[in-house]
């Protein structure tokens, strides 16, 4: 059972208001009494009732984290970092999984609109819809978007520049001497995947190399799809000497297919994969990967939210972060 303010007052033999003042570091309590109260509170692991405290201070020290997709490993990673950032500022998070459904989002938004949380961070998801747009009109609602776009109104946002990651990967491969670089991307009608393709094309346009549309392969995001993509591509007219994969699971399948075919990485084909995590780390040879700035996305978005909650941001903020290229053996040419 949680110890309350009342319990501490009884144990210390003082009034409840004295305990409250001591715990909140306010004037009017003798040093000795204060120490005594703090000691009891510590011994009994006293935690103030956040909700009650919120009612008094109009703050709950809680934020809602809206997750558009539960199955995305990157999203989960962002949540982990967010929670850590929140904890360090004495905040707790409430996880709201919307499954990309507007109705669910609307229901969870009531947390924000009824001041049960101090602010909300939205990770990923479709274009901002009417419920969120409406919520944004009230300056009381502190909102930060992560990797989510809005058409009509301004939202404080932290975004990933997906094109810049692939751009870096292509530039790196060209520098290593690879000339026929294939891109294995995710589904075509996806904006993020389209941005990645844009980065690929921009890097090629800047180089002497010619863009060959046969080398752009769009597929599902799965291990099988990555596997099949390799089989398909090596049957085409132009055989690539390097692969960039834009999805984690596709990367695994692609590497498997190369090895199953008896080819060597990077001798026969260089590979730049996606996602610096447990899956890609066990691949042999060590894989060069693009790593999304997940920790940074979490930190920045929480920092912005905290500012919005406390004293507001002094200007409109949209921060765009770049993925980083982690170079390992799979893309380093051994012989020229």
């Amino acid at each position: 059972m949680q110890i309350t303010l009342k319990d501490i007052a009884r144990m210390a033999g003082v009034a409840e208001s004295t305990v409250s003042r001591a715990l909140n570091d306010k004037k009017g309590v003798g040093e000795e009494t204060k120490l005594k109260i703090l000691k009891i509170a510590k011994e009994h692991n006293y935690r103030p009732n956040q909700l009650a405290r919120g009612l008094a201070a109009k703050k709950t020290n809680m934020i809602a984290v809206f997750l558009s997709e539960m199955d995305s490993p990157s999203n989960i990673e962002i949540v982990k970092h967010l929670e850590a950032a929140a904890e360090s500022e004495d905040y707790q998070i409430i996880l709201c999984n919307t499954n990309n459904q507007e109705e669910k989002e609307k229901r969870y938004l009531s947390l924000l609109e009824s001041n049960q949380v101090d602010g909300a961070i939205f990770i990923g998801g479709k274009l901002v819809g009417s419920h969120l747009l409406r919520a944004s009109f009230s300056s009381d609602n502190s909102i930060v978007l992560v990797n989510r776009l809005a058409e009509e109104n301004f939202f404080t946002s932290v975004l990933t520049d997906y094109s810049s990651g692939i751009y870096q990967a292509v530039k790196h491969l060209i520098k290593q001497g690879y000339q026929k670089i294939a891109l294995v991307s995710g589904p075509k009608d996806n904006l993020v995947e389209e941005e990645k393709t844009t980065g690929y094309m921009e890097a090629l346009e800047e180089s002497e190399l010619k863009l060959n549309h046969d080398l752009i392969y769009s597929t599902e995001s799965s291990r099988e799809a990555g596997y099949n993509a390799f089989l398909k591509i090596i049957e085409s007219e132009v055989i690539p000497d390097a692969f960039i994969s834009t999805k984690e699971l596709t990367t695994i399948g692609l590497v498997e297919a190369i090895k199953m075919g008896g080819y060597f990485i990077p001798d026969d084909f260089a590979v730049v994969g996606y996602g610096d995590n447990i899956l890609t780390s066990i691949i042999e040879p060590p894989l060069t990967v693009l790593s999304e700035p997940l920790a940074e996305l979490a930190k920045k978005s929480f920092y912005f939210l905290l500012k919005l909650i406390n004293d507001g941001l002094d200007s409109q903020k949209i921060e765009v972060l770049n993925p980083s290229l982690i170079i390992r053996d799979s893309s380093i040419k051994k012989y020229n």
């Binding site: 479709k126 274009l127 809005a150 009509e152 301004f154 409109q316």
Partner: peptide, 24 residues
């Protein structure tokens, strides 16, 4: 709708800043 506050995304060119809604 057009409001006083709007966001042009700094990493997108003008084309994409106009097109992303339709793309999504």
């Amino acid at each position: 709708m057009v409001f006083q506050n709007y966001a042009l995304y700094p990493h997108m060119d003008v084309y994409d800043n106009m097109a992303f809604g339709l793309k999504l």
